[in-house]
């Protein structure tokens, strides 16, 4: 009898030794990812000039510039200023995946229903899935796979259907919880894209000054640089209406 008890105790001990770190690890990973989300979504709103530099395989570059306004995570307005022949074009993202496009040459904004998130976001190497405003911790199941002096490495598995990725491996800065690198793996397990982040501290927030996304198959890259970033400017919902996409001087004539 004693022997049975001892064996049972030993069994409990051994399973707890195996299981406890797993649970702890999973909790840690979730907490870490949540911290990353919190850092990324800390400002109430932001205004910035965004420079977009596209580079193809042959090294040829194309530059774009846009004025960006963002409120919370899911209201975002881009108004392009360069190149000149596309100046005035605006895109508006609203909660629930709603998207609008304004082409000045055609007057009224058009609603775009995006059924395929794998599409490239306005010619960049970011897909609409990459630009999803939902927090990472709500979209992915994280797992801590590595830890060094400077970073935690998390493996994120999509918790939603119809993802173009089987996993994303994120390097998370240990001191400040911002991502330094994300590696995207397709459903065949092949690494297809790599994003490098350069976070800086401004006032009271950390933000990605530059993000470079490389498409490894197409050998094409997109570098997004944020300039003249201002946080918490008190943007209201009225700044994110469909009508707000149209420049003020044109609104009356369009009506």
């Amino acid at each position: 009898m004693i022997q049975i008890k001892q064996v049972f105790a030993l069994f409990l001990l051994s399973t707890s030794i195996i299981l406890i770190p797993c649970t702890v690890q999973s909790q840690d990973a979730k907490a870490l990812l949540k911290k990353m989300d919190d850092l990324m979504m800390a400002p109430k709103d932001r205004i910035a000039t965004v420079e977009i530099l596209l580079e193809n395989k042959g090294g040829k570059e194309k530059a774009r510039e846009a004025e960006m306004k963002q409120k919370g995570a899911d209201k975002r307005l881009y108004r392009y200023t360069k190149p000149e022949n596309q100046a005035g074009i605006a895109t508006l993202s609203l909660p629930g995946g709603e998207m609008w496009l304004y082409l000045p040459a055609f007057g009224k904004p058009k609603k775009i229903s995006l059924l395929a998130k794998s599409q490239a976001f306005t010619g960049t190497d970011f897909s609409y899935e990459d630009m999803d405003p939902k927090p990472y911790s709500e979209r992915f199941d994280p797992k801590l796979i590595n830890s060094t002096d400077k970073i935690w490495q998390l493996e994120l598995t999509p918790s939603y259907e119809k993802s173009d990725y089987s996993k994303i491996v994120v390097d998370l800065d240990k001191t400040n919880y911002f991502p330094t690198k994300m590696e995207y793996f397709d459903n065949g397990g092949q690494k297809v894209k790599v994003a490098d982040y350069n976070y800086i501290y401004s006032g009271k927030y950390w933000y990605a000054k530059t993000v470079t996304m490389k498409d490894l198959k197409k050998e094409h890259s997109t570098e997004i640089t944020m300039k003249e970033v201002k946080f918490d400017q008190g943007l209201s919902d009225d700044d994110f209406t469909v009508e707000s996409m149209i420049p003020a001087d044109k609104r009356k004539t369009d009506k």
């Binding site: 392009y80 022949n85 596309q86 074009i89 496009l101 082409l103 000045p104 040459a105 055609f106 058009k110 490239a120 306005t122 010619g123 960049t124």
Partner: peptide, 25 residues
């Protein structure tokens, strides 16, 4: 799709703006 009338637009700046939708394709 934008205007409801398929065909080549009359003005170059209109084509340049439609091009925005094709970028990256």
């Amino acid at each position: 799709l934008i205007t409801g009338e398929p065909g080549i637009p009359e003005e170059q700046y209109q084509i340049e703006q439609l091009w925005f939708l094709l970028e990256g394709n």
